[in-house]
Amino acid sequence: MRRRVIFRGKLLPYLLLAPQIAITAVFFFWPAGMAIMQSMLREDPFGLRSTFVGLENFAELFADPLYLGAFSNTLVFSGSVAFFSIAVGLFLAVLADKQIRGANLYKTLLIWPYAIAPALSAALWLFLFHPAIGLFARIIRGYGVDWNYYINGGQAMLLVTIAAAWKQVSYNFIFFLAGLQAIPKSVLEAAAIDGASETRRFWSIVFPLLSPTTFFLLVVNLVYAFFDTFGAIHALTQGGPAKATETLIYKVYVDGVVNLNLGSSAAQSVVLMVLVIMLTAVQFRYIERKVHY
């Protein structure tokens, strides 16, 4: 018995849609169109000479081992950022959901990191782990580890992963906490009466019931790691050492802004655009259909 409003004529609906379409056109279609156009040009930075080269920029990109390297860096980086931030967020949410004294205080404190600007938090991480002046760096070296992420690629990757994941933990925490509170207490009580241990109750009841939240967070965290971690990487490693932490989004910046290689940078943005469209499509298609309780 849904009520449907049917407009007479064709003008009014288009008129009502016009503001939204205008905003989408100006802020999405136009820049995206420019990027696609630029990706098929080879141009000097000043735009004085440009040649149409078709798909050559793309061909060069996929033949370039460094680009493929950035691709695999991005997969490793995004995968671990999503995994760590979801795992830690869930762990903290489960702890904070218990009946403990001062639970509200913990909850508030755990949400704080989300309010810190990415560049700022990266600066804090820098001060903690800087090989020369970092507080933790000194402690780590006290244990005999040669901590110098300026030359050790693995350490650099670990550091940017932790810095990027740390910020996302709060976000995941809020969603998991809400998810946990929505789980009917009666089910848990019934299981407890049947003699299920706490671990068992978590894996057999809580975790499956949380799966829609987890799936949503997985997509959101992957998108975050793909596109929003520029600040952390820029402040900490600048993609180094030896490109060990250069992700796709960072490479777009390096090639476009630093190296002024606009054609290649635009081609990379187009690839990223395709990726984000795919991720969003997956999210819309599966988020409520395939994840069942």
Binding site: I151, G153, G240, P241, A242, K243
Partner: peptide, 12 residues
């Protein structure tokens, strides 16, 4: 930057 990267690889 390329030279810096290759230096880093040699030092690694």
């Amino acid at each position: 930057n390329i030279i810096q990267e290759e230096m880093e690889k040699a030092l690694q």
